[in-house]
Design a protein around this nucleic acid. Structure first.
Lengths: 191, 191
DNA sequence: CACGATACGGAGCTAAAGTTCCGTTTGTCA
DNA sequence: TGACAAACGGAACTTTAGCTCCGTATCGTG
């Protein structure tokens, strides 16, 4: 993790000082751990402490808690996209490839409490990942199109159905249900 | 609404004074409205104000906010059970009757933000409705059994799958997705 | 090396929301 | 109707957690 490069996100693209860039990564790593342990009620102070930095520094990099979570989610969406791309390029039955993509995404959700929370909560956090999300949708579009062409996916399925269904799976993950079972039942409905 | 009688819930069953009983109902009605408007972040003060009563009175009847929500949920579970019972006793295709029960329950969830919240959140709130929940499960058991007997429901479906799937639907309702679509996709997987 | 800009630290501020406390009011029963 | 228990009201208390502020430290350039 902490691989995705942050690119230019300040409007005036001034390069971060070396220590600042290092600390930014530390903060994100710490946030992943702390959100993983405590869920969304993880506290900003804990994130800072875990990173071995002050809260002031945390707020310098992420102006609000929401912004911090949004960055975690943004990175996770790129992970989803990577899974979808892998599935798209793999050989084999189109339905199974779609299923594999969804399974991989669900596993990624299981590992990331911040994303899990974001999937159950408001849309604000997702807005920051609009670009990445659009790419992801395009990939699901392609996966579904192949499945439909092969006649192994229900004809009226669209990419827009996927986030809706996956948010349901995320709720099961969060609540400790047998989410693999949930996913299999849902997949059965997509044939 | 506000129909379900409260029965004896204090361990020492002493009858409530007339005004207290009336106020209790007012508070529950107000809570339904306020939770409906503001979701789970509705505030206790608002509930009291809406009921035309003081916060002290609210806390006399419901010792915590969780207790208040739990009572709303408990009543809603009896509504679920009523829907399930209606579906069970109706004539027609067993699968359609199961589907009808789930649709009715989803509509009931749509109307009740407190329940919606409870479905996405911790289990604590549900513990208070354990008895009602058990009855509901028995009804779903029966609905599924008939469907299986008729061969119109997948053989491995159990009543335990239903809350899991319905929590997913509740998330869609909460997030403003097209939950009817979500439900139809899920139903397709239960055949 | 020095100097200005950038970044850091962490005590403390602030606001929000659940809850309590106790003086006042109201119902109930003899 | 009088007296007592039950119930009410709502100002104030108590967290709690996000966030700010500004003095200090560090980086990078000429």
């Amino acid at each position: 993790m902490s691989s995705t490069d942050t690119g230019a996100e300040d409007t005036d693209a001034r390069p971060l000082r070396a220590d600042a860039r290092r600390n930014r990564e530390r903060l994100l790593d710490a946030a992943r751990v702390v959100f993983g342990e405590n869920g969304s009620e993880a506290q900003m102070d804990d994130v800072a402490e875990r990173a071995g930095l002050g809260v002031g520094t945390l707020y310098r990099h992420f102006p609000t808690k929401t912004a911090l979570m949004a960055e975690l989610v943004r990175q996770k969406v790129t992970v989803f996209a990577a899974h979808a791309r892998t599935a798209l390029e793999a050989p084999g039955d189109p339905f199974e490839r779609l299923a594999a993509a969804l399974r991989s995404c669900a596993e990624a959700v299981e590992e990331d409490a911040a994303t899990r929370y974001a999937m159950g909560a408001g849309t604000e956090i997702w807005d920051a990942a609009a670009d990445e999300h659009e790419q992801l949708m395009a990939l699901f579009d392609a996966l579904i199109a192949r499945g439909r062409a092969a006649g192994v996916v229900r004809a009226d399925l669209t990419a827009a159905d996927i986030p809706m269904l996956m948010c349901g799976i995320a709720t099961s993950i969060e609540r400790g249900f047998d989410w693999r079972r949930h996913l299999e039942l849902v997949l059965a409905g997509l044939r």
